[in-house]
């Protein structure tokens, strides 16, 4: 099927929705159709949050297990929990908090069996070091990382343009800076 399907996961309050909005804007600017499903409401109170997001010729906002091209995880535990969404050979972009978790033998076997490409980056450390620990910028950092790791649908130029249109003016320069940090985290 022509198109790219993303599952974006994290914990309520991490600003996940902004990430899919930027990718959506970039896709629309390229003239591509988009459809996605977001979580608003109760789950945003610190619970597990999942966004389904699809670029291309789709009718449903939902992605079936085994059909996502990319799982983007703001939180590594939420990412691991949602790996069944990936098809074989899919990409797991993950904000790594505790690297030892990714060393779990069962997890390593699952990832190898399903030929999952793991793209990890140390989001919290990067933000601690360069953005005074402002974790709210994780949503932009992950976009930068996605572009840096050449993830489908996440090319640097269109994402930057989308970020420029969607950022509230007072956050624009910080957003662009953090996006750059993400690019280099790859």
């Amino acid at each position: 099927m022509a198109g790219t399907q993303y599952i974006i996961v994290g914990v309520g309050g991490q600003g996940i929705l902004f990430t899919s909005r930027v990718i959506a804007r970039a896709a629309i600017d390229k003239g591509l159709p988009i459809i996605g499903s977001e979580v608003h409401g109760m789950a945003q109170r610190g619970g597990s949050v999942i966004s389904h997001f699809k670029i291309g010729d789709f009718s449903s906002p939902l992605i079936s297990e085994g059909h996502a091209d990319v799982v983007m995880a703001f939180d590594q535990k939420e990412g691991i929990r949602n790996l069944p969404f990936l098809h074989e050979g899919g990409t797991f972009l993950v904000n790594v908090d505790d690297p030892s978790m990714l060393e779990n033998v069962h997890l390593k076997r699952y990832i190898a069996d399903r030929r999952i490409r793991v793209c990890g980056f140390r989001g919290f450390d990067i933000l601690d070091e360069h953005a005074k620990g402002a974790y709210l910028f994780l949503n932009v950092l992950i976009l930068g990382a996605a572009a840096g790791m050449k993830i489908e649908g996440c090319e640097e130029a269109p994402l930057t343009a989308a970020l420029e249109t969607l950022s509230p003016p007072k956050f624009l320069s910080e957003n662009l800076k953090v996006f750059g940090l993400g690019l280099n985290a790859a």
């Binding site: 619970g47 297990e65 691991i80 929990r81 790996l83 779990n104 069962h106 076997r109």
Partner: peptide, 26 residues
């Protein structure tokens, strides 16, 4: 319906104590 074998992932989640996060007061 085709279902991928997720037994390794289930084992990993058990060992790592990964469960869905409940919503909570801020």
């Amino acid at each position: 319906p085709s279902a991928a074998d997720s037994s390794e992932l289930d084992a990993a989640m058990k060992e790592l104590g990964i469960e869905p996060r409940k919503p909570q007061l801020c």
